[in-house]
């Protein structure tokens, strides 16, 4: 092999390597998260739908693990667990504050910042509605979870 021949081969090799590196289109710069759930690896199975709905319940039905309190959050008069404190809307006990619904003084919130106009909980439901169809499960199962979400969504709209 002559010198120019070797040089020619090395140059060609370098060019091919360079082309190879740069032409693998976009695999190299596409780095999906390795330790977190994203749209690429979520909304696949029934389990995904169930886990998502699990986290919705505490937003709408105050339950276990929520603190002890007797605030005056609309409309019940308390903002603590309604499982335990639900009695405040019956005649069984008298809370420190009163239920605005029972006293017929509940007003639909109008001003922004008054608490009624933060839509973060509805956003949670809407994200479900946008995505649940991606799951590869039968419609029967999908509709089960869809019904839960529709139920809660109509519930909150009634309050607005």
């Amino acid at each position: 092999m002559t010198r120019t021949n070797i040089i020619y081969k090395i140059t060609l090799f370098t060019c091919i390597v360079t082309l190879f590196y740069s032409c693998k289109k976009d695999d190299f710069t596409t780095r999906l998260p390795l330790d977190r759930l994203g749209d690429e690896n979520f909304w696949r199975s029934e389990n995904d739908l169930r886990l998502y709905n699990n986290a919705i319940y505490p937003l709408y039905i105050t339950g276990f693990g929520t603190g002890f309190a007797d605030g005056t959050l609309q409309p019940w008069g308390v903002n603590a667990s309604k499982i335990v404190y639900g009695d405040v809307i019956t005649d069984n006990l008298i809370p420190n504050s009163y239920s605005t619904v029972a006293a017929n003084t509940y007003t639909v919130p109008t001003l922004s910042g008054s608490g009624g106009w933060n839509f973060s909980n509805i956003r949670v439901l809407n994200i479900f509605l946008d995505n649940y169809n991606k799951a590869t499960v039968s419609d029967d199962i999908k509709h089960l979870y869809l019904a839960e979400v529709y139920f809660l969504k109509h519930g909150i709209i009634l309050k607005k």
Binding site: G63, G65, R123, V124
Partner: peptide, 20 residues
């Protein structure tokens, strides 16, 4: 993710997934 949601289903507090 929430390892234990503030709600009891069938006697346990299950895992929950929160929206992005």
């Amino acid at each position: 993710t929430t390892t234990q949601v503030d709600y009891i289903f069938d006697g346990v507090r299950p895992v929950g997934i929160t929206p992005p």
